[in-house]
């Protein structure tokens, strides 16, 4: 009888593969470094013991749906953000929902290694999780953190940690309850003056080395040819000058309007620790205010930029005659 979270995931994956419900199970396994987990693709029932899930799984697994064949029957181990990302991808016809089996796991949050490094300069050797506590083995000795101290910011601001529309949910308690979005950090950004906001944005964007790791980590960035890769005409300068850096961050975020599921995979992938979820969160907040839309929650609701409702009143323009410009 499976008892732990990992065993329950493994048991479900084993059943799916043995009964031939799916061809592949996408989940996490131990990585090459002791405190890094890596995505894995399990195709045989005997390999399911590799599957694990803990707070160090920093990728968003929905990204692999874009790389796998469309008709492949796939099971994915999903947390809250991943399930919403899958939902959005299904809505955008990236994958058929009937070929997917979502193994939902109530989220325990993702740990931010940078936050540990802020507290301790020593190299991290290993990380052990135990309920709400996280034991970190440093070169100079062991240290224990509360989980909430070193959670990633995207997880601290997370609104829907429970998987949405999953086929089954692993019966384990997650770390969070459903809660209302903590908007305070966005409001404090909005309350800055025009100049301060520009400085804040520039301070982050100017560190960009244009590696596009954020794009590769993002499940919503699946264009065959990205706008930054066009060479004729070259829309965006591809070197690390301010014009190119700013354009990349502005347009990348804008393409996510009403689509970003705020998983924070882009920030975790960034080698320069550039903050960027605030951009997409601001846009999503606007979408919520104006169209009452949150990405990935309703399987039938199209994102606002795809569904063109009649919003003449909102813009002060009527179909005939009167208009306010």
């Amino acid at each position: 009888m499976p008892t732990t979270r990992d065993q329950k995931i493994q048991a479900e994956a084993k059943r799916l593969l043995q009964e031939g419900v799916v061809d592949v199970v996408i989940g996490f396994t131990k990585g090459t470094l002791p405190y890094k987990m890596q995505p894995c693709f399990i195709q045989h029932a005997e390999d399911v013991e590799q599957l694990e899930l803990n707070g160090l799984c920093s990728n968003n697994l929905a990204v692999y749906l874009n790389h796998r064949p469309k008709d492949e029957r796939t099971a994915i181990v999903v947390r809250g953000c991943e399930s919403r990302a899958v939902q959005t991808l299904v809505l955008e016809n990236r994958h058929a929902r009937e070929n997917l089996y979502l193994i939902g796991v109530p989220c325990i949050g993702i740990l931010d290694l940078q936050k540990i490094q802020q507290h301790e300069q020593d190299p991290v050797l290993a990380i052990q999780e135990e309920g709400d506590q996280v034991h970190v083995t440093l070169k100079s000795g062991e240290k224990t953190f509360q989980r909430s101290e070193i959670l990633h910011n995207a997880c601290l601001h997370c609104n829907h940690p429970l998987p949405v529309n999953a086929d089954m949910i692993i019966d384990e308690a997650g770390l969070f309850e459903e809660r209302t979005f903590d908007k305070s950090y966005l409001e404090s950004f909005r309350s800055l003056s025009l100049k301060e906001r520009y400085q804040e944005f520039t301070k982050e964007a100017e560190r960009c080395i244009r590696c596009y790791a954020c794009r590769e980590a993002c499940p919503m960035c699946y264009c065959e040819e990205c706008f930054v890769n066009h060479s004729r005409p070259q829309w965006v300068d591809s070197t690390i000058d301010p014009a190119g850096q700013q354009a990349w961050h502005i347009i990348r975020a804008f393409h996510q309007t009403g689509r970003c599921v705020s998983c924070g995979a882009c920030e975790r992938a960034c080698p320069m620790n550039i903050k960027m979820t605030y951009l997409t969160d601001l846009l999503n907040q606007d979408m919520f205010k104006e169209y009452d839309f949150e990405p990935g929650l309703d399987p039938a609701l199209m994102p606002p930029f795809l569904a063109l409702g009649e919003d003449n009143e909102k813009f002060g323009v009527g179909p005939e005659g009167s208009h306010a410009g």
Partner: peptide, 15 residues
Amino acid sequence: RRTLSEFCNFLNLLG
């Protein structure tokens, strides 16, 4: 109308 008005809001946030 939808996208550009939102883009205008977004640029307003960025300076």
